[in-house]
């Protein structure tokens, strides 16, 4: 009984550690800041904020916004819209998404 108890306990602890480790590694547990792009209210694509990437968001109206994620900042450097509000908006913050109204593109930061 005692020996089995110990084995069971070790198994539980091991399982807990594995789950924690997996969550930590996948970024679900700590600091997994995400860049979420929605077009017309629907999630279009997600990126981790800590990876440098350039991505062309293409919308159904034939427009585009060039999203740049660099050094933990996500911003638009180029866009098809006439007013360029999204380009002038600078980096997205958790409480301040970058928005392109003509293309209905919203870029938000989701923090953990």
């Amino acid at each position: 009984m005692k020996k089995k108890d110990i084995i069971l306990l070790l198994l539980i602890i091991a399982a807990a550690l594995i789950v924690t480790a997996v969550l930590a590694l996948t970024g679900a547990f700590t600091g997994g800041d995400k860049v979420v792009v929605t077009v017309d209210g629907e999630v279009y694509k997600e990126f981790p904020l800590n990876e440098n990437v350039e991505y062309k968001i293409e919308t159904e109206n034939g427009g585009y916004n060039l999203l740049v994620i660099k050094d933990g900042a996500a911003y638009v450097t180029e866009a098809s819209c006439p007013d360029k509000v999204c380009v002038n908006a600078g980096a997205a913050q958790e409480i301040k998404p970058v928005v392109c109204a003509p293309n209905k593109v919203v870029i938000t930061i989701e923090k953990d």
Binding site: L9, I13, A15, A16, V19, A28, F29, V99, V106
Partner: peptide, 25 residues
């Protein structure tokens, strides 16, 4: 120790406070 293990299991799920965000244009 069993109790501790259970807590360890639960930790990941309660570490994240649920937040809901919305944008209006």
């Amino acid at each position: 120790v069993s109790l501790l293990s259970c807590i360890l299991f639960l930790l990941p799920s309660c570490a994240r406070t649920q937040r809901y965000s919305e944008t209006y244009l």
